[in-house]
Amino acid sequence: MSTKKKVLNDFGGIMYSTDPGFVYEEEEQSPREALPNNQQDLRVTLDRKNRGGKAVTLITGFAGTEEELDKLAKTLKSKCGVGGAAKDGEILIQGDFRDKVILLLQKEGFKVKKSGG
Rank of each mutant, 00 (worst) to 15 (best):
R48C: 03
M15E: 02
F22Y: 08
V101W: 13
G89K: 12
D99A: 15
E66W: 02
L69D: 06
K87T: 15
D47Y: 04
S115R: 15
T60V: 07
Q106H: 08
K111G: 11
D41E: 14
N37P: 13
K79S: 13
L69E: 06
A63Q: 14
P20T: 13
T45H: 02
A34M: 15
F97A: 12
Y24I: 04
I91S: 10
F110R: 03
K87Y: 14
L104F: 12
R32N: 05
N38L: 08
G13N: 05
G95H: 11
L42K: 03
Q40H: 13
V101K: 11
G83K: 01
G53I: 03
G83W: 12
G61I: 06
K5D: 00
A73C: 01
D19F: 00
D99E: 13
E68W: 06
L105K: 07
S78L: 09
K71L: 01
A34C: 14
Q40T: 06
R32W: 11
P20F: 09
R48I: 02
G64D: 04
T60P: 08
T45K: 11
F11Q: 01
I102E: 12
D10W: 00
T3E: 00
E25M: 10
V82L: 08
G21R: 14
E67Y: 07
G95A: 12
P36R: 05
R51N: 04
K74C: 03
Q94H: 14
L72T: 00
T75Y: 09
R32V: 10
G83I: 07
G12C: 00
C80P: 01
L58H: 07
K114Q: 13
E28D: 15
T75N: 10
C80G: 06
S115N: 15
L76C: 00
K113W: 12
I14A: 03
K107L: 10
E27A: 12
K49G: 09
S78M: 10
V7N: 01
K87M: 15
G52D: 02
S17R: 04
K54N: 07
Y16D: 05
N9G: 01
S115V: 15
T3H: 05
G52E: 03
K111P: 11
L92N: 11
K100W: 10
M15Q: 02
E26W: 08
T45Y: 09
K79F: 13
G109K: 03
L69K: 06
L105D: 09
L69I: 01
G13S: 04
S30P: 13
G21D: 14
L46S: 10
I91D: 08
V101R: 14
D96Y: 09
I14H: 04
